[in-house]
Design a protein around this nucleic acid. Structure first.
Lengths: 331, 331
DNA sequence: CTGAAAGCGCTTACAG
DNA sequence: CTGAAAGCGCTTACAG
């Protein structure tokens, strides 16, 4: 490996001068900088980020903690988050909660990340408090945990759900079912409560047998729809916890031969790219996931810079995107 | 930050002893190990990976170089690769070629990765030779570059394509079109050549006007299908460079109101999870992408261990998975 | 404007 | 079995 000492030797300066010159320190003369840059180029030298990290006591690597990497939702957060981090001179390292290499908190601390973004927090996860105790900067992305305050980027589902349900009611649905997300996530819980409250304003109550819960994945929607639509007397509409769940439901409907929206209407939440496919055309609730992901990136680097600043929180509005999976209620 | 020195003080031993004890060095007595572990636990200490990396001169971080993070194909390589790396005690850091922070090679070198896997190599990319020159271990994933030899994990498309085309011919297609991948990728080129060669055995030639090329993305398939099927005299079947392209084509067909496989048949390559959706049911060529991704993970850590070993290469076989997008040719 | 010195948190010979 | 010493590649006061 070639180091700043090699460059120093070639340029005929001291090693610290190489360090300063390459970081464009104003205290170094232009002539020297020039000489150093040439030497560095000649040797193909690039400074070791790890030497630097050890020296300054902080790295430029942020971790993204996710449980389900396979889930397409996360592809759409990883991409923009990575780009924004790169723009800020940081790297993205992936961490999953199911880490076999021991507790995530230890992993995070040991691996010298300057901060982490938590994308799959549950209400009962211990990670936030562990990170807090160890002084590791972090931000909540999308989901939050109630007990440990920290920066967060979230979405406010209300407006989108109101618009969606207004359409649902206008189309004559009164027998509505739902496949909600997990109860132990802030997003799952908030969306469910909002749906129930707004439905209530319209005089509609969800029948217990028309409701399912499960992880925000394809399978939940798939199995949920089989359960709900496979019955003699199914609801005319099924609200899904998110688009991936709705995609599962849509496919289950196709398997069952139940027409959407002829026999049953379906709604999602997230408006992923797949939802606008001609083959899908899912009516859903949208928000700017791309901007959210980038905001989280900016937030974590800012936080790493000023660990003591007041927690900030950014919330993104939602809107209804009607497509073709919600039709007039069959009578 | 709490360091091994703090633990040493509390345990009443020297700092190197802490280091050895925690790594379970057999030369340390059980009694001492016990004491050190307790002290470490009490202080909530976890060893700094970056201190360690600097000391041993090698990190446990492997980079994955990808251009299009949004592409669902990569979600299915990232997940298994990450899991396998984690199992091996390594981390995955994401790198995109469009790195604004200067040339990727410099980035890779500077950031102290122990190796990188190249997932979006083109025939003309300079990265392989740069990495080679700088002595950075790397492996080709899926695609290779011809000039720089290195470890690789690839797929052999022949068997799958043979089976696919046998079915195509049996169903009476003779007017076949294609939306191939980019000419400057080994995968794009190899699949195209194989298709042409096997088709030739069946006495079929692709008409120039029935062929399109483009990046392996949704848009390529989408625009390609609009161009091919929007004409007066379209081919009866369109072979796509991969599933994501085929998904674009399938959706374009839906938009155009052309029935699949009634009006036109469509084939893919990869067999992504989406392809088996009831809404999709894409006939395609399959291989074990999961195993491939894990193999690449194992390969890069092995390579980082023995930089001088002979390059190894692992190739995965393919098979045809008939579903419903290929039908009898209309006459 | 530049250099010598010390230090970041580890590991690894080398002694004992 | 354990410790003192040196070093990994940087950065950052401190002198000059």
């Amino acid at each position: 490996m070639i180091t700043s000492h090699d460059v120093a030797r070639l340029a005929g300066v001291s090693q610290p001068t190489v360090s300063r010159a390459l970081r464009d320190d104003p205290k170094v003369s232009e002539a020297t900088k020039q000489r150093v840059r040439e030497a560095a180029l000649a040797l193909g030298y690039s400074p070791s980020a790890i030497g630097r990290a050890l020296s300054v006591g902080r790295s430029t690597r942020v971790g993204l903690v996710v449980t389900d990497l396979e889930n397409q939702f996360y592809a759409h957060v990883i991409a923009p988050m990575h780009h924004e981090l790169e723009r800020l001179g940081h790297e993205l390292v992936l961490i999953t909660e199911s880490s076999e290499s021991g507790p995530v908190a230890e992993h995070v601390i040991g691996h010298g990340l300057c901060g982490v973004v938590l994308a799959t927090t549950t209400v009962d996860s211990i990670l936030p408090s562990r990170l807090h105790d160890r002084g590791v900067p972090f931000v909540y992305f999308n989901r939050t945990a109630p007990n440990v305050p920290a920066d967060s980027v979230t979405v406010d589902p209300e407006q989108g759900i109101r618009e969606l349900l207004a359409d649902v009611v206008a189309k004559g649905h009164s027998r509505v079912g739902a496949i909600f997300g997990p109860r132990n996530t802030s997003t799952g819980e908030l969306r469910e409560q909002t749906v129930r409250a707004v439905l209530d304003e319209h005089g509609i109550t969800l029948a217990h047998r028309d409701v399912r819960h499960g992880p925000f994945d394809f399978r939940t929607g798939h199995e949920g729809m089989h359960a709900l639509a496979g019955r003699a007397d199914p609801p005319t509409l099924v609200l899904c916890g998110n688009d991936v769940v709705a995609l599962g439901a849509l496919n289950a409907a196709a398997e069952l031969g139940v027409a959407v929206p002829g026999d049953v209407s379906i709604a999602g939440f997230d408006d992923l790219p797949t939802s606008s496919w001609a083959l899908v055309r899912l009516s859903t609730v949208a928000y700017d996931l791309d901007a959210m992901s980038r905001a989280a990136a900016r937030m974590i680097v800012a936080r790493a810079d000023k660990p003591e600043a007041e927690p900030v929180t950014e919330v993104f509005p939602t809107r209804y995107v009607p497509r073709t999976t919600i039709g007039t209620a069959r009578s």
